[in-house]
Amino acid sequence: MPYIILGTIISALILRYFWPSIVYRKSAGQSHKNLNEDDYYINSKTEGGKNFNTRLLLKQTILFLVFWIFPLVLFYLLSKDFTFWKGLILFFTQTALFTIGGSYTVLPYVAQFSVSKFNWLSKSQMVDGFALAETTPGPLIIVVCYVGFMAGFNHFGGSLLMGTAGLLATTFYTFLPSFLFIFIGGPILERTRGSNVISDVLGFVTTAVVGVILNLTFYLGKDVLFPQGLMLNKIDLMALLWIAVSLFLIFKLRLNIVYLILISMLYGLFQYYFI
């Protein structure tokens, strides 16, 4: 996914340079007449990146590196399998730094690598993690915490302690870069306010993110409809039926997604006990 986003940015810049007429350009400046008093106050206070401070930026970066390195050193000193922990830490740091678009774009990337490359958990366990996240309070991104737990749990022979350590490490290294973006990236972002180039590039990135979200649909749909392999005679007809019913309830009857999840849980229980 990082390569897709990078390619999208490069493509947007090339298209904008050679064929500017096909690129939608947002207005660089918004008239104060179109802003309410609150918006005008906020824009006037932050205009031009006045809060940008190079020395503060350097201090924050060093502090971020200290926070990042400290748990890694502890794992090196205390763990007998540092290779596993180093791989987990580097992967989730990379995931947090280089994925764009929210949980629905991050999770296909996490699922692909954790299942297919690292073998931290099975496909069915990954799908169970999605279901668990959808049926419990909190944002969908908490699936990565589940992945971290299962990685430690499976790698160390069913150890709850190592699973818990994996959960904590994954949570820490997934959300730590967010603070880097907020405190360091915020002032830098203010300097780009009103830039037509940034607006055009982000428009292209948005379309790429939609495609990545669609990829998550295929990833989950394939394993739900074909749990025994991609063969037409092995399709799960009950799952196919409920997909059709869910689409009808959402798009035709405009059913609230919370009610759909609750109904789906009841449908799953009925299928498990009576079919």
Rank of each mutant, 00 (worst) to 15 (best):
Met1Thr: 11
Met1Tyr: 01
Ile4Asp: 00
Ile5Gly: 09
Ile5Asp: 00
Ile9Tyr: 02
Trp19Cys: 15
Lys26Trp: 12
His32Met: 12
His32Phe: 14
Asn34Gln: 08
Asp38Ser: 09
Tyr41Phe: 14
Tyr41Cys: 06
Lys45Ala: 12
Gly48Asn: 00
Leu56Lys: 11
Lys59Trp: 14
Leu63Lys: 10
Phe64Glu: 08
Ile69Phe: 15
Phe70Glu: 07
Leu77Cys: 04
Asp81Gln: 03
Phe82Val: 11
Thr83Asp: 10
Phe92Lys: 03
Thr93Leu: 15
Gln94Ser: 14
Gly102Lys: 06
Tyr104Asn: 13
Thr105Phe: 00
Val110Ser: 08
Phe113Arg: 09
Ser116Arg: 06
Ser122Glu: 00
Val127Lys: 01
Glu134Arg: 13
Thr136Cys: 04
Gly138His: 05
Ile142Cys: 10
Tyr146Leu: 08
Val147Glu: 11
Val147Gly: 13
Met150Ile: 13
Gly152Asp: 05
Asn154Thr: 07
Leu160Gly: 01
Leu160Asn: 05
Gly163Asp: 03
Leu167Glu: 07
Pro177Lys: 15
Ser178Ala: 09
Leu180Ser: 12
Gly185Asn: 09
Gly185Lys: 08
Ile188Trp: 00
Ile188Cys: 04
Arg191Trp: 00
Gly194Pro: 01
Ser199Gln: 15
Asp200Thr: 14
Val205Ala: 04
Leu214Tyr: 02
Phe218Cys: 07
Phe218Ala: 11
Tyr219Asn: 07
Tyr219Ser: 09
Lys222Trp: 05
Met231Trp: 03
Ile235Val: 14
Leu240Gly: 07
Trp242Asp: 05
Ile243Trp: 05
Ile250Cys: 10
Ile250Phe: 13
Ile250Ser: 11
Ile250Ala: 12
Ile261Asn: 01
Tyr267Lys: 01
Gly268Ala: 02
Tyr272Lys: 04
Tyr273His: 08
Ile275Val: 12
